[in-house]
C-alpha cells in the first residue's frame, strides 16, 4: 500500500531550510556590501583618471582612492554626476558618464571635456556587451586614445576616417559598434555640454 503523502513535515522542512539559507546569504551579503561598493567606486575612479590621461601605474587601490579624493570633486546635478578635476587650484576639466545603445547592448563610459568646452580630453568605457575581439576592441587603448584632445569646432563632432574630414579611425570588422560609439558621442556630448554650461561647469566666455 502506498504511503499517504505527508504535508506538514515537508512544508516545515522547506521553511526551516529556506530560513537557514536566507540567514547565511544575508549575512554574507551584509559583510561584503562595503567591499563591493568600494570596488565599483574604484572602477569608476580608474575610468575617470584614464579620461584625463593620468597614469596610475604602480599605485595601490588605496593610493588611487586617495589621489582621487585629492584631485576630484563630485557634484550631482539632475541625475548626472560631474567630476571636476582641479590641479594647482585651477580647474582642468570635467568628466561625466555617457551611455547609449551599442550593437548588442548598452555601452557606458566616461567622457572628459575641457573647462572652456572646446575640447574633448578623453574617453573611456566601463561596460558594454560588444563581441569580444571585434566590437569589444573599443576597450583597447589604441581606439580610446584617439579621442584625446579633439577640438569640438565642427558638427558632427566625430566622424571616421573614411568619411570626409574624418578625425578618428573606426575598428576594422566592427563597423556597427564603431558607428554606435560615434552616434552616442555625437548625440550625447552636445546635450551634456549644454547642461554643463547651464549648471555652471563651464569656464570661458
Amino acid at each position: 500500500m502506498a504511503k499517504k503523502k505527508q504535508i506538514l513535515f515537508p512544508v516545515l522542512f522547506m521553511v526551516v531550510l529556506t530560513a537557514i539559507f536566507t540567514f547565511v546569504l544575508a549575512t554574507i551579503n551584509e559583510v561584503t556590501t562595503d567591499i563591493i561598493s568600494e570596488q565599483q567606486e574604484l572602477s569608476i575612479q580608474k575610468s575617470i583618471f584614464y579620461t584625463f590621461n593620468i597614469s596610475l601605474e604602480g599605485l595601490s587601490d588605496q593610493e588611487i582612492q586617495d589621489k582621487f579624493e585629492a584631485s576630484f570633486e563630485k557634484t550631482k546635478v539632475n541625475d548626472r554626476t560631474y567630476y571636476t578635476y582641479t590641479k594647482e587650484n585651477k580647474v582642468q576639466g570635467y568628466a561625466v558618464q555617457i551611455s547609449g545603445k551599442g550593437l548588442w547592448g548598452t555601452i557606458t563610459g566616461h567622457v572628459a571635456f575641457s573647462p572652456d568646452h572646446e575640447k574633448i580630453l578623453g574617453l573611456n568605457f566601463i561596460s558594454h556587451s560588444e563581441t569580444p575581439g571585434l566590437g569589444g576592441r573599443i576597450d583597447e587603448d589604441e581606439f580610446k586614445d584617439q579621442f584625446r584632445s579633439i577640438t569640438l569646432d565642427r558638427e558632427p563632432y566625430f566622424s571616421y576616417g573614411t568619411d570626409i574630414g574624418g578625425n578618428v579611425d573606426a575598428i576594422t570588422g566592427a563597423t556597427l559598434t564603431s558607428l554606435a560609439v560615434r552616434d552616442i558621442l555625437n548625440g550625447e556630448i552636445p546635450k551634456i555640454l549644454e547642461e554643463a554650461k547651464k549648471e555652471g561647469f563651464y569656464e570661458g566666455n
Binding site: 547565511v24 546569504l25 554574507i28 551579503n29 561584503t32 567591499i35 563591493i36 570596488q39 565599483q40 572602477s43
Partner: peptide, 11 residues
C-alpha cells in the same frame, strides 16, 4: 555566495 565572492574580490 560565489557571485558575491567574485563581485567583492575579483571584480
Amino acid at each position: 555566495i560565489l557571485d558575491i565572492f567574485l563581485k567583492a574580490y575579483l571584480p
